[in-house]
């Protein structure tokens, strides 16, 4: 396998995402840049310029017509995916940690951080085809309780529910419209770093600095557990094969006395059902901050602390590999 290295960021990566069709890959970093790449060739298609602080989260709508970003400059922006023009800006009282479109892209979720005297806030806004029609006031605002600790990531679940991961390892579930908490549970013993849903939206994977990633069902029951010896910064569920990919790592722990010849930080592949690790690929020179998998399961992307994005197209070996004869 020959990974494609995309150099578009000068600071650590915060998020990489594929669009629904899989032909585009979006990346955001601490250098305030928000880029879009061809997932086939790795060429830079364009960038969405305008943020002045770390871009923490990004999303793209189902039709790849609009993109959205949330930044530490206390704003969330709506962009025209094709031209890069900023269509709308929501200003918030504190840095934005998460943004997400609903599948219909009629609503969006903006979650802000507990900072500058402001509590962690979840804001539901409306999206209209004509940006002029976007109402100034959000549809709903609710505050997750302080004892849950600030949310680090939030994603839409089915039927306008919202699932959040928190700093103290709790995972919570909310009704977006009423702002009521449906459920919450302490899942991890460390910060929840990422939360990604399966293709059919019936379960999701959470990753945490407690060196594990877990699969939870919609009722927050732990279905699967993937254990590692390093903090996990991101995890994604492969859509076709029964695999999950974990990315993480810790700087100090990678120090060895052997000659360090190549980027030692690895993305790790686990069998989703058997919970057993079966594959690794190295290359990053710093911890991996974000991973994403192509909707057809033919490639995956990882973004590292060193500012590099590595785009991997799988070899036939990967598709043929069976950890167990029952593997599809």
């Amino acid at each position: 396998m020959r990974p494609i290295v995309c150099q578009g960021h000068t600071r650590p990566l915060t998020r990489v995402r594929y669009n629904r069709d899989g032909d585009l890959m979006f990346s955001a970093g601490k250098d305030a840049k928000f880029n879009v790449w061809s997932s086939a060739t790795g060429e830079l298609i364009g960038s969405y310029d305008g943020h002045t602080g770390v871009v923490w989260d990004i999303d793209v709508d189902a039709n790849t017509t609009r993109t959205m970003s949330g930044s530490a400059d206390s704003s969330a922006r709506l962009w025209d995916a094709r031209s890069g023009k900023c269509l709308y800006t929501w200003t918030t009282a504190s840095p934005v940690r998460s943004v997400a479109f609903t599948p219909e892209a009629d609503l969006a979720l903006i979650v802000t951080d507990k900072k500058m005297g402001q509590p962690c806030t979840a804001i539901i806004v409306e999206i209209k085809d004509n940006v002029a029609d976007i109402p100034e006031a959000p549809l709903n605002i609710f505050l997750p309780e302080p004892e849950l600790t600030p949310a680090t990531i939030a994603r839409w679940g089915p039927e306008h529910t919202i699932y959040m991961g928190h700093e103290n390892g709790t995972v919570s579930c909310w009704d977006a419209m009423s702002g009521e908490r449906i459920a919450s549970k302490k899942i991890h013993s460390g910060v929840v770093t990422d939360l990604q849903f399966s293709e059919d939206g019936t379960y999701f994977i959470t990753s945490s600095k407690d060196m594990s990633a877990k699969i939870l069902d919609l009722k927050l029951h732990v279905i699967k557990n993937f254990q590692t010896e390093r903090p996990v910064n991101s995890a994604c569920i492969c859509p076709v094969k029964e695999h999950v990919i974990l990315g993480g790592g810790q700087d100090a722990s990678q120090v060895t006395t052997t000659t360090a010849k190549v980027g030692k930080f690895e993305s790790r592949f686990y069998h989703k059902i058997l919970q057993q690790e079966f594959g690794r690929v190295r290359g990053h020179f710093g911890p991996i901050n974000t991973v994403a998998v192509h909707p057809d399961g033919t490639s995956f992307t990882s973004g590292g602390e060193e500012g590099l994005i590595r785009l991997h197209h799988f070899d036939p070996d990967y598709f043929r590999f069976k950890l167990d004869p029952r593997d599809p």
């Binding site: 089915p158 059919d200 939206g201 019936t202 069902d217 919609l218 059902i273 029952r326």
Partner: peptide
């Protein structure tokens, strides 16, 4: 494997 199939099946019923 069997437990997973069961779980998936139950979850999909909701869709």
């Amino acid at each position: 494997f069997d437990a997973w199939i069961q779980f998936r099946s139950r979850a999909l019923l909701a869709i």
